[in-house]
């Protein structure tokens, strides 16, 4: 649309601390992170772009994201002082098309309407390319770099920060395969997850993400577990069911944020309705702002050992 885009910095100590300071104690850690990213941007932009994800599919029986994602702009607007003007990008596919959201966005940004069609078409192409990368197993940050060039062409989004990433180190040759199930904003936030994917690789595991499961596969798995109206949790459930039924997967880790409402329910549904005798081992890793790297190391190492031991036995 012709605006210059500024992205927030990768999560770090002070960003997280700022977020935590502005949030209610018992809210989930991703919201605290979001606040941190908003504050990180506050002085570096003229307009703050915040998405309001209400419903992300048009379905016969309406589905929704999580109450906190629906209410995110309300929270930001009412509780952080001194932030730039905020524009909302509402995604409510159950009620209206993405095009009409884009039109409203253009109005709010003062962008001429004729530009909407071309920019939306381009955005859709980029999104498709990005989705394809994810499907092929590329991590979101890397996929974005590949698709958009240097993050967004403004030079600050895709900074190569691998040197500072916790958990980085030489991987050993993988002998087991572990699937990760959980919100992307947790698993792929290297700071809060202590770079879980790289850690697993270091422990000799080949890692596969739920973003690598095609949507048709998820849909067909879900046919066995109807009655969930949280769109992202449906994906979690479908992906978990897929992984738990695959013989080449040696273990599944559900990664959830402390105080995540939907995950507290869906992880219980997965362990009680999906897991069978034949399923590979499953564990849950709960992350919050107090989780130390040592704690994650211990959990991951124990899980990997368990897998190797049970395999040697059989």
């Amino acid at each position: 649309m012709g605006t210059e885009v500024v992205l927030s910095s990768p999560t770090g100590d002070s960003l997280l601390e700022n977020g935590v300071r502005h949030c209610v104690d018992d809210i989930c850690v991703p919201v605290k992170l979001f606040y941190g990213h908003v504050l990180d941007l506050a002085e570096r932009c003229d307009v703050l772009f915040v998405s309001r994800l209400v419903s992300v599919e048009k379905a016969e029986v309406a589905t929704y994201t999580c109450p906190k994602l629906i209410g995110l702009p309300d929270m930001v607007k009412s509780s952080i002082e001194g932030i730039p003007r905020m524009v909302e990008f509402v995604v409510d596919l159950q009620e209206h098309s993405i095009r009409s959201s884009a039109k409203r966005l253009a109005t709010a940004l003062g962008v001429p309407q004729p530009r909407v069609r071309s920019s939306l078409a381009e955005a859709e192409l980029v999104q498709a390319a990005y989705d394809e990368k994810l499907l092929a197993g590329v991590e979101p940050e890397e996929a974005m770099r590949q698709v958009l060039g240097n993050g967004n062409g403004t030079g600050n989004g895709g900074k190569d920060s691998s040197a500072r990433k916790p958990g980085a180190g030489r991987a050993r040759k993988p002998d087991i395969k572990i699937a990760l199930v959980g919100h992307e904003y947790l698993i792929h936030d290297h700071y809060i997850s202590h770079n879980l994917p790289a850690k697993l690789k270091r422990f000799g595991a080949d890692v596969t993400y739920m973003t690598q499961v095609p949507i048709e596969v998820i849909e067909s798995e879900l046919a066995r577990y109807p009655g969930i109206s949280w769109s992202y949790e449906k994906e979690l459930l479908g992906a978990a069911s897929h992984f738990l039924g695959r013989s080449d997967i040696d273990g599944v880790i559900i990664v959830m944020g402390f105080a995540c409402g939907p995950d507290s329910i869906i992880s219980e549904i997965i362990t009680r309705e999906v897991v069978t005798e034949a399923s590979p081992p499953l564990t849950t890793l709960v992350l919050d702002e107090h989780t130390g790297e040592a704690g994650v190391d211990t959990r991951v190492e124990a899980f990997v050992d368990l897998i190797r031991r049970s395999r040697n036995r059989s």
Partner: peptide, 16 residues
Amino acid sequence: PFTCMPENICRTILPR
């Protein structure tokens, strides 16, 4: 209740 989602949002907004 602790971690209640809608009320956490309210709690965030109520000071305003």
